[in-house]
């Protein structure tokens, strides 16, 4: 998904900074963005879970980006997340603590500059906890709330925050899952939707509009009924 998002921005002419734990693994993606779109691409080492390093990471970037997209996520296995507190902590840290930390550092730098856009990839799983994946759901619910608060705080400082709720996407994370065709987006759709959302300064987007309806229904099922469903 990160690759598709990077391509969408590079395709719109933006130079791109890619940050990941092992930047050497991104060499081919750097070459791809340069070859396809002729934009400048740089690679940076970044560990979402090493929150102590985040301030230095932001300070060390050659240029503070105009737009930063946080595509950090880890689902794990629900059964393991329930049984093992450490597995649950990893899910909570990867989806909430790490992303919140890096966005907060970027927010500080952007509000000091007086401009910028932050994009957080959260999840519809955070709209309501479900038996099948509520550890991941809880982490994403927290992240969605965090993004909402951040947007609220930064609205006076010309820094915009976009919350992206992709729905199902055909990626490594959903590999092997049997997903309904109409609800499942290709990574390219996510990329295009984010570029649009940034341009139009949208607040919260569902990549496929049908998800807005699906989640409205799911959120509004009364709890006495919801608790008996298998979703």
């Amino acid at each position: 998904m990160a690759r598709a998002i990077a391509r969408a921005f590079a395709g719109a002419g933006h130079p791109v900074q890619l940050a990941a734990r092992d930047p050497a693994r991104l060499e081919a993606d750097k070459a791809d963005l340069e070859t396809r779109f002729g934009v400048e691409v740089s690679l940076h080492e970044f560990d979402a879970l090493d929150t102590d390093s985040h301030a230095a990471f932001v300070g060390g970037l050659p240029d503070l980006p105009d737009i930063a997209v946080c595509v950090v996520g880890y689902m794990g296995e629900q059964s393991e997340n329930i049984a093992d507190a450490r597995a649950a902590a990893r899910v909570l840290r990867s989806n909430l603590e790490g992303p919140a930390s890096i966005l907060e550092r970027l927010a500080a730098a952007m509000s000091a500059r007086g401009s910028g856009t932050l994009v957080g990839i959260s999840s519809v799983a955070g709209d309501r906890g479900r038996a099948s994946n509520y550890v991941y759901g809880a982490a994403k619910a927290g992240f969605t709330a965090y993004l909402s608060g951040l947007r609220n705080r930064l609205s006076a400082e010309n820094v915009h925050v976009v919350t992206v709720l992709p729905g199902f996407v055909r990626t490594a994370m959903t590999e092997g899952m049997d997903l309904p065709e109409r609800l499942t987006a290709e990574p390219e759709e996510v990329g295009a939707a984010i570029v649009q959302a940034v341009k139009k300064r949208r607040n919260i987007i569902y990549v496929r509009p049908i998800w807005r309806l699906v989640m409205a229904v799911i959120r509004n099922i009364p709890e006495p009924i919801f608790k008996k469903t298998k979703l």
């Binding site: 081919a28 993606d29 070459a31 791809d32 070859t35 396809r36």
Partner: peptide, 25 residues
Amino acid sequence: DRMISFEDGVLVAEAGVLLSDIVQT
């Protein structure tokens, strides 16, 4: 599906790149 380089008319790319992407690029 990554394109790796393009020099002197020779494109080096991964196997999953579509010919449509090559034309578009």
